[in-house]
Simulated assay, not measured.
Amino acid sequence: MIFPQSKTEVSRIDVLHAKETQFLRLSIELEVTRCLAVAKDATRLADARVCYARQEAALAVNDLDQFATLDRAFHASLYKAAGVENLWMIVAARSGHIDRLRNLNLPDPGKSASIMDCHRRILDAIAAGDTDGVQAVVREHLSGMLAQVGRIMERYPEYF
């Protein structure tokens, strides 16, 4: 419905909602990556490897929008590889606030390189069947942005 002469108002970022969504995502991805590491089936990682390569290419030309799209595709491919693709849709449906935080954090120096490093180590640990190693990297990877929330709030107070 369109209402003439009305305004559009963007909601403030809800940090509590973002933290809850991150907790949900972390819980699921720990199990997703553990299952993939236990399976030791390299063919399951084909889509994730393609996403990783495309993400590298996007980073090389500093296309952060494409980089972010491929970041989501990388994680979705892991859920699909583990046979729980619909769980990604649940996480993605709740991710609006965390995605907005991520968009504010992504341009920071070194952030995209850190993401790529974590993605590479996730793929390597899964391929090696290293369940402890992959879980450590997933914890590091998914906690990075939330560790920066205070700094993000200071830089962009108008969003909170």
Rank of each mutant, 00 (worst) to 15 (best):
Q66R: 15
V10F: 08
S95Y: 11
Q5C: 02
D99E: 12
H97F: 15
L16S: 13
V10G: 01
I115M: 04
L36Y: 00
D108A: 09
I122L: 00
A127H: 01
Q55W: 00
Y159P: 00
L78H: 04
E9P: 00
S114N: 12
W88F: 11
L106C: 02
C118D: 15
A127I: 02
R120I: 04
D132Y: 05
A76H: 12
L26G: 10
P109A: 12
D108F: 06
A48Q: 00
V149Q: 04
S77K: 07
F160W: 10
S11C: 09
Q55D: 02
A57W: 02
S143H: 12
F23V: 02
M153Y: 06
G110E: 01
A125I: 01
Q55T: 06
L142S: 05
E20K: 15
R44E: 01
P4I: 02
S143T: 10
D63T: 12
L142V: 02
D132I: 02
S77E: 02
N103L: 14
L106K: 05
Q22P: 01
R139W: 03
L142Q: 05
E31S: 09
A53S: 14
T8K: 10
S114Y: 13
R139T: 14
A76L: 09
D65P: 02
A136V: 15
H75G: 07
Q55K: 13
L87F: 08
A82G: 11
S6T: 12
K80Q: 14
E9M: 03
K40S: 08
L142A: 05
D108E: 12
K80D: 08
L59Q: 11
T21M: 05
G96C: 07
Q22W: 06
F74C: 00
G133R: 06
S95G: 11
Y79W: 10
M1I: 10
E154W: 08
Y79A: 06
Y79C: 03
S27F: 09
F3Y: 13
F3R: 14
D124G: 08
S77T: 04
I98Y: 15
I98K: 10
L78P: 03
I90H: 04
F67T: 08
L101V: 01
H141S: 07
R34C: 08
A46S: 04
